[in-house]
Simulated scan of single mutants.
Amino acid sequence: MTAPLQPTAIHAVPAELCECGFRLLMIRQFNVGAVPPAFAIIDQRVMRMPQRLGRHGVSFAATFLPEVMSWLIDHLGRPSLHDESGRSYRNPRWPVVCWHDQERYWPSGAVTVEWFAEVAFQDHASWMAFRTRWHESLMGRNADADSGLGEADARESHDTEKEFADEAFQQA
């Protein structure tokens, strides 16, 4: 039996899967009065951990872990391509990655802002291949061991999977 999840918990949380991508909890932000916010970096196994900058900041760059990047390059090509004149452009086959924030109210009275990386694949076949290969990581587990830790309470469900994918594509 696991203890109830606390606002300061950094345990891996399973990704929210949708039709063509996923939403993954990355950071929990604590705002306390007039002081700079504090951040809890959530332990997950698909994206690189956000980097802490300076004394009070967190870089909101979102990129995949090296092993995930290698797999994506093998299956979709490099994230950046070059045209005939040598100018680089985004590989249209690569998934779109953006941020989503959501306030969360805890039974203890704490209020946090949860930051999710949203990843939307350009086609269903690429998403299914990714989902199959990285299933354990998306569920917040290592491929070789199941931590068994996750959120004890359910968050509000999102309206529809299509809305999530549409929002991610519009922000790209």
Rank of each mutant, 00 (worst) to 15 (best):
E16T: 15
L17F: 09
L17K: 11
L17Q: 06
C18V: 10
C18K: 01
E19C: 03
E19A: 14
G21L: 05
G21P: 07
F22R: 04
F22S: 02
R23K: 10
R23E: 12
R23V: 02
L24R: 06
L25Q: 02
R28A: 03
R28C: 07
F30T: 04
N31S: 13
N31P: 00
N31A: 03
G33H: 04
G33K: 09
G33T: 07
A34E: 09
A34T: 12
V35F: 14
V35M: 14
V35C: 10
P36A: 11
P36F: 11
F39L: 01
I41W: 04
I42R: 04
D43P: 01
Q44S: 06
Q44P: 05
Q44C: 06
R45M: 03
M47H: 01
M47V: 10
M47Y: 09
M47D: 04
M49I: 07
Q51S: 11
R52E: 06
G54S: 07
G54M: 08
G54Y: 10
R55Q: 13
R55Y: 03
G57R: 10
G57W: 12
S59E: 12
A62N: 06
T63H: 08
T63C: 04
L65S: 02
L65R: 12
E67R: 11
E67V: 06
E67I: 00
E67Q: 14
E67Y: 06
V68N: 00
M69D: 14
M69V: 12
S70Q: 13
W71F: 15
W71D: 04
W71S: 01
L72K: 04
L72D: 05
I73N: 08
I73W: 06
H75M: 09
L76Y: 00
G77K: 09
G77T: 07
G77F: 04
R78K: 12
R78G: 05
P79Q: 10
P79Y: 08
S80R: 15
S80F: 08
L81P: 05
H82M: 13
D83E: 10
D83K: 06
D83I: 01
R87L: 13
S88T: 13
R90W: 05
R90E: 13
R90N: 10
R90A: 14
N91Q: 10
P92I: 03
P92M: 06
P95S: 02
P95Q: 05
V97N: 08
C98I: 06
W99Q: 12
H100A: 14
H100P: 01
D101C: 02
Q102C: 12
Q102W: 12
E103Y: 11
E103S: 13
R104A: 13
R104N: 12
Y105C: 10
W106Q: 10
W106S: 03
P107K: 12
P107I: 00
V111A: 12
T112C: 11
